[in-house]
């Protein structure tokens, strides 16, 4: 996030830098500052109509637009990948409306907008991770009344959160929540980490980068300042466990990453590949080779060819 206020250049004619007008950005920045001051607390903000449907990252886009400066380098990922529809369309949107440089390399980016993943590579202090959040309220499916959930947050009345985990164990024998796994921030607020897989929860704890969460439809912004304590909720006798995979990435051979299952034919054939495409490409460039890389078409094998 370089120089919040230097949003002077205009890319596509007729648009203000990064689409939103300056007063709107100012309003969003105030919400962001408040969110940073109270880690995990959901700050209401006057979410704007964006030129994309709700559910496509309108909250994340507004947060990114508010913090984007002319010298920033933006990376957008969707489920870890830089080349899926949501990622491509948002990246193009900011290329067009702000003219900032974009990248697919995690290490080069100053702002990373993400849907549902945290990059595998450790983030640094000069990076900002912006999450697109569909439902910011972790208590929503347990308590439908917004007035009541606000009081519950205010009074730290979080017994209900464990009722959900109890139900999981009673039904499945273990905590079966695998994404949007609730966390407690700095021993105070219970927060929905957006629908990231619980594999990524440990990365949120003590992260060097600033993490911002934007929910456009629900009109909420919340944040984790750098090096915030983030603990996944659990029971003493059923501790939190990140997802583990029995496979290695079929392209780069990584055994410590979050994998996507890809169906390769209609006869039961499948492969597991890193969901973080940039991380996978880098590993291949370094010479790591997965089991299927030899057979993969050149386009998939990518940088390793």
């Amino acid at each position: 996030m370089s120089a919040l206020a230097t949003s002077g250049t205009v890319a596509a004619s007729g648009y203000n830098f990064a689409y939103l007008d300056e007063q709107t950005k100012r309003m969003i920045r105030r919400a962001i500052l408040k969110a940073i001051a109270i880690p995990g607390y959901q700050v209401p903000f006057a979410s704007r109509e964006m030129p994309m449907p709700y559910g496509w990252g309108t909250g994340g886009v507004q947060v990114t637009a508010a913090i984007l400066g002319a010298s920033d380098r933006l990376k957008v990922i969707d489920q870890g990948a830089d080349d899926t529809t949501n990622a491509v369309s948002i990246r193009k949107f900011f290329e067009k409306t702000s003219g900032v440089a974009t990248t697919t390399h995690t290490a080069e980016a100053t702002i990373i907008q993400t849907r549902h993943r945290i990059p595998e590579k450790n983030l640094t202090a000069d990076q900002v991770l912006v999450y697109q959040v569909p439902i910011p309220e972790p208590l929503r499916f347990l308590e439908p009344r917004e007035t009541e959930t606000r009081v519950m947050h205010a009074l730290e009345d979080y017994g209900l959160m464990h009722v959900k985990l109890y139900e999981d164990i009673a039904t499945h024998g273990h905590i079966a929540t695998t994404y949007a796994y609730p966390v407690k921030v700095e021993d105070r607020y219970v927060m929905d980490p957006s629908p990231t897989p619980k594999f990524d929860n440990p990365k949120m704890n003590d992260c060097a980068a600033l993490q911002l969460f934007g929910a456009g439809r629900e009109k909420r912004i919340y944040a984790l300042p750098p090096h915030t304590k983030v603990v996944s909720l659990d029971f003493d006798d059923h501790p939190f466990e990140p997802t583990k995979f029995d496979h290695a990435c079929a392209l780069c051979g990584a055994t410590h990453t979050y994998l996507d299952e890809v169906i390769t034919d209609d006869a039961g054939g499948r492969m597991f590949v890193c969901s973080d495409t940039d991380h996978c490409e880098e590993r291949r460039a370094e010479g790591h080779r997965g089991a299927l890389l030899g057979e993969a078409p050149a386009a998939i094998a990518g940088a390793a060819e």
């Binding site: 979080y158 017994g159 209900l160 009722v163 109890y166 139900e167 009673a170 029971f235 003493d236």
Partner: peptide, 27 residues
Amino acid sequence: LRMGVSAGANVGERLMAVGWRHYGKIR
């Protein structure tokens, strides 16, 4: 009652609200 969750969770809710964090004991 919370009609959407099991009887065990209904009984255990107060215990969890006052800080019980051991599934086996709650059950």
